[in-house]
Simulated scan of single mutants.
Amino acid sequence: MVLSAALSVLRLSACMAGLSARLCPVAPRRRRAFYLADRPSHRGGHETSRAYGVFVLTAPAFAVNAAFGQNGFLTGALLYLGVRLADRRPILAGVCLGTLTIKPRLGLLIPLFLLLRGHWTVIVSAICTSIALVGLSALIFGIDMWRGYFEHVMPFQRIVAEEGTGVFLRMMPTGFALGRLQGWDASYAMALQAPFSLLALGLTVWTFRKPSAAPEMEQALLLVCVFLFSPYAFNYDMMALVPALFLVLESEIRASRSGPTRLNLMLIALFLLPVITFFLPLGPAILAGSALVLAQRISACRTEEPAPASVSGTN
């Protein structure tokens, strides 16, 4: 029953995304409507925005956040916008990523991405934002707040992560959680996580050491790698993937690849992953498979469209 409902939700979302693509078939890629990062200025932009709204509201990650009262809406938006706006609005992107320090595990690969693409303005903006937030919080609440965080909160978080059981572990689509679900000690579970983290690290370096050839695909790959890399990723944080999946799905439909291709099947799996992880420990496999398929498509795009000689992301 749950699977049937999830598939129905996905069909509705995919239909809306497909409808939006057909309503504005002549829009240039860089002007594709996405109201969080792209202002819909072409005919059909409002329809695309509505389609995106439906896509978000029907996303399993949305339901998980609503059900558990989590902050994935905020952190997901900060992560996605920080990546999406790095080229066009570097200062704003840096503010988003600097604010994301409220949940450091989501930003472990972001500095590498910024360095590889030469987004120096984003880096400076993020550092300044982080320092400002730390200073402001210390000014308002006192330095003892930070001392208490390091002395009490961080050890407690580590205990919960390493010894927690039950539904807590089923909300983590990671190799570490997979090991813990099998009853393994935290050290062995972390060893199981290692190859997934190395894969995410390698794909990030491979993707962003070269000039951009398929921005939507690359952004989606980076976000997938963020969850693949961290041993403590949670399904409610996967709201960050929703807009990236929407843009990739739309580009696939525009390219007349709306059938059951490997990429589309992986998009379906990623879309449903926040719910799948409650029932089946397939998170690491789905994330790793999706990352590899996205990397393959990026490689194909680079072959089809030769990249410019210089990196365009330097700020």
Rank of each mutant, 00 (worst) to 15 (best):
V2E: 08
L3K: 08
L3D: 07
A6M: 08
L7Q: 07
L10A: 10
R22D: 07
C24K: 09
A33I: 14
D38P: 09
D38F: 15
H42A: 11
H46M: 11
T48H: 13
S49Y: 06
A51W: 11
T58Q: 12
A59F: 14
A61W: 12
F62E: 00
N65E: 12
A66I: 05
G69K: 04
G72V: 13
T75R: 03
G76Y: 04
A77T: 13
L78S: 00
L79K: 05
Y80Q: 00
L81C: 06
G82P: 12
I91N: 01
I91F: 12
A93K: 07
T99E: 07
T101N: 02
T101Q: 02
P104R: 00
P104G: 01
G107H: 10
L108K: 08
L112Y: 09
L115Y: 01
R117S: 03
W120V: 09
V124M: 02
A126S: 06
I127P: 03
S130R: 05
A132D: 00
V134E: 00
S137E: 01
A138R: 07
A138M: 11
L139R: 14
L139E: 04
D144G: 09
M145W: 06
W146M: 02
Y149D: 01
Y149W: 14
V153G: 08
I159F: 15
E162K: 11
E163R: 13
F168C: 03
R170E: 08
T174W: 11
T174E: 02
R180E: 01
L181Y: 06
Q182M: 12
S187L: 03
L192Q: 09
L192S: 10
P195S: 05
S197D: 01
G202W: 13
W206T: 15
R209D: 06
P211L: 10
A213L: 02
P215S: 05
A220S: 10
L221M: 06
L222I: 05
C225P: 13
C225M: 06
C225G: 06
F227G: 03
P231W: 05
D237T: 05
V242K: 06
L245Y: 14
F246A: 09
E252I: 03
E252P: 03
I253N: 04
A255N: 14
S258I: 05
S258Y: 07
S258D: 09
S258M: 10
G259R: 14
P260E: 01
P260C: 02
M266D: 12
A269R: 07
L272D: 04
L272V: 10
P274W: 02
T277C: 12
I286F: 07
A288K: 03
S290E: 03
S290V: 06
A295I: 10
R297D: 08
I298K: 02
S299Q: 12
A300G: 00
A300H: 03
A300D: 01
G313F: 12
G313Y: 14
